[in-house]
Design a protein around this nucleic acid. Structure first.
Length: 382
DNA sequence: GTATGCTTTCGGC
DNA sequence: TTACGGCCGAAAGCATAC
């Protein structure tokens, strides 16, 4: 065992000598949905562009998915109600469009293929982000990495017409924060020797995984910047946030992160959610909607040749609070009737727990097993 | 008391 | 005056087993 460890360490040192340090890129496609709309209609570029999810319940009910930077100047950001966006842009020549996911996905696929070709290891995150491990490709040189990124940016701009922001760092965490710090069309390089000075003055909320709630809690402990967090006693962090998070926060604040770049796996859950025409707590009205959602989920399930073992329903109540119910089955299944029956049971019990009417309803399945595996096991058994 | 598993909520994009 | 999507994975919260 000791011998093996030594070999691994020697291996690591050799790698360092041969290729230099690890270099990770994070590419983040700028205001992606809105930029895609500008791509197919360049006249939009000078106007505020708002891409929204329209729920169909009233004119303009829904939320903003992405807005271009012209619209953001008016306070129109992701997540705000479309009505509010209208109000903020009422005296401006603004353009409101519904999301066209298929089109955006097509553009994304082309860009991702391009990015992948420049990487040693590639990991797509969502429709608009990707990590590239380019350590070998650039021989561990941050300078070479910077030149490579300029080249990729120009090529994607020329071939596809989309801009993105890039962060370069010694690991995924630093690359991500770097990319966030200069948008749109930015490039930020953080060499290992600059990691600490780069991070220390930033607010803790810039660390992935630290949102509003956690940063408020940290502020109460006197932790405001990432530098404060980096110097805070680890054991005290563990006491406040638990072992996993405490260690994660400590390492992250010090720029330490060893997450490898790897190809994304298949999704761990499939879900659909939809806004009802009007608020209701009538079971048959809800089941009409969940049946539609189930049909779409089941199509996806068959496409990936999987079985599910867990079923859930999620309800957004009239006051926008969220309730959910889920259940693990005794065995995996791909049967739509079982799915429908499970959803009905969960829905009945959820309705029984509150007097409030429901505004949006969703269905989710998870804990998949592959049909292929099952078939293999069966055939080898017989 | 700690690990594990199940269920609900949180939060990023 | 108010206004409010549709995903996903991770974390939190809780119960049970050892």
């Amino acid at each position: 065992m000791k011998g093996l460890t030594s070999i691994l360490i020697i291996n690591k040192i050799w790698r360092k000598v041969l290729v230099g340090s690890t270099i990770i890129l994070l590419a983040d496609l700028d205001y992606f949905f809105a930029q895609c709309e500008e791509l197919r209609n360049p006249d939009l570029k000078i106007k505020p562009v708002v891409v929204g999810v329209y729920s169909g319940r009233t004119q303009d009910s829904g939320a903003v998915s992405t807005a271009n930077y012209v619209a953001r100047k008016y306070g129109v950001n992701s997540g705000i109600p479309l009505h509010l966006a209208r109000k903020r842009l009422q005296n401006v020549d603004a353009v409101f469009l519904p999301v066209d996911y298929k089109y955006y996905k097509h553009i994304s696929d082309e860009i991702m293929a391009q990015l992948r070709s420049y990487s040693d290891l590639f990991e797509q995150v969502g429709i608009d982000e990707a990590y590239l491990d380019v350590s070998k490709k650039v021989q561990g040189s941050f300078k070479a990495a910077g030149l490579l990124v300029e080249k990729i940016k120009n090529e994607v701009k020329k071939k596809i017409g989309i801009s993105f922001s890039m962060g370069i760092g010694p690991n995924k965490l630093v690359a991500k924060i770097a990319a966030d710090s200069n948008k749109p069309d930015g490039l930020t390089i953080v060499k290992p020797s600059n990691v600490n000075s780069f991070l220390e003055s930033l607010p803790v909320s810039r660390l992935p995984g630290i949102g509003k709630k956690t940063s408020q809690k940290m502020n109460l402990l006197g932790i405001n910047t990432i530098g404060d967090l980096a110097h805070y006693d680890v054991q005290s962090l563990i006491d406040s946030f638990g072992r996993n998070l405490g260690v994660y926060y400590h390492n992250s604040a010090n720029g330490v992160n060893n997450e490898p770049v790897h190809e994304a796996n298949e999704a761990e859950s499939i879900s659909r959610i939809s806004t009802l025409k009007e608020n209701t707590r009538d079971l048959s009205a809800l089941l009409d909607k969940t049946d539609q959602l189930i049909l779409s989920i089941h199509r996806d399930l068959l496409n990936r040749n999987s079985k599910f073992k867990r079923v859930g329903v999620i309800a957004i109540m009239a006051n926008l609070s969220v309730r959910s119910k889920s259940k693990t089955l005794l065995s995996s299944s791909d049967q739509i009737d079982l799915l429908k029956k499970s959803v009905q049971n969960l829905l009945e019990s959820l309705i029984g727990e509150s007097e409030m009417k429901i505004r949006r309803i969703g269905v989710k399945i998870s804990e998949f097993t592959s049909n292929k595996e099952t078939q293999k096991q069966l055939s080898s058994y017989f």
